[in-house]
Design a protein around this nucleic acid. Structure first.
Length: 249
DNA sequence: AACCAATTCAACCGCGTGTGC
DNA sequence: AGCACACGCGGTTGAATTGGT
């Protein structure tokens, strides 16, 4: 029995495809598909919540978007995942984890849903069985890894701490001290044309205030925060700091 | 042929994020 | 700043299909 017939039959019986609060759920019928295709032809993708109003399609926007992206889009590739695609999925999943939409962007014609399903049915299963057969080996390996990881973390913490010290002394010598001196000279207010580095401290260049950095000298920083701070710093400084920080990414 | 289990995949759900007012 | 709405994403569900006994 086709989806269309089943949906129609179920709707008549008040089943899973029945109208619920004005919106249909369950499998899409051919008529619904053609209404949606027509809508996209006329209005383009997006504004999915207006589909029901403009076409008479009794589906919510979310459902329309999903149907279009995962099934109706003309650029979708049909058929089985090729060995090449499989290797790409493996490689990208190792890099990105379960970020299916990110992975899907590298596989034209494949949807995140498709890749997600493929992963769950193929690789997750492979992973599970191999894990079972190697359980005892893994336990031993795990203990060794934990030990290595601990040592590695210790090393990283030390490296990160050294990096912090470098940045602190750099900021202190090259930026904070000169800025504080300038602040004293201009006693609170500076003209705009002298603002080469002022913008790195404040978006308001007309009124300069001595910068106030809250740099924790104990403990470790979050490197993302450092990267965030880089965006507020002028270009030459940015480059130097980026070079300092980049080995840790 | 009949039954059951495993697999596949379309669709739904909840939540987070972006955007405009 | 805060709210409402739209959109996108990842996890999950459930019915159809396939394969094995």
């Amino acid at each position: 029995m086709s989806w269309e017939l089943m949906a129609a039959a179920a709707a008549q019986l008040g089943g899973w495809a029945a109208v619920e609060e004005g919106c249909r759920k369950g499998p899409w019928t051919a008529e619904e598909d053609s209404l949606l295709i027509e809508y996209v032809k006329l209005h383009g993708e997006g504004r999915w919540n207006s589909v029901s109003g403009l076409t008479g399609l009794r589906r919510n926007g979310k459902s329309c978007r999903l149907r279009w992206l995962n099934y109706l889009r003309p650029d979708l590739k049909r058929g089985k995942i090729t060995p090449y695609e499989k290797s790409v999925i493996l490689k990208l999943h190792a890099r990105w984890g379960n970020r299916w939409s990110t992975i899907a962007r590298s596989l034209p014609g494949r949807t995140d849903n498709e890749i997600k399903n493929y992963w769950r049915t193929h690789f997750k299963k492979e992973k599970a069985s191999s894990t079972r057969s190697e359980k005892s080996k893994t336990q031993l390996r795990k203990r060794q890894q934990q030990h290595q990881q601990y040592n590695h973390q210790q090393q990283q913490s030390q490296q990160q701490y050294q990096l912090q010290q470098q940045i602190i002394s750099f900021l202190q010598g090259s930026i904070i001290q000169p800025m504080e001196e300038m602040a004293t000279v201009y006693s609170g207010t500076v003209p705009q044309e002298q603002g080469l580095c002022y913008s790195m401290m404040s978006s308001d260049t007309s009124t300069y205030k001595a910068p106030h950095y809250e740099i924790p000298r104990d403990g470790l920083w979050n490197l993302d925060d450092i990267q965030g701070h880089l965006s507020t710093i002028c270009a030459p400084t940015k480059t130097i700091m980026h070079n300092l920080v980049s080995p840790f990414y």
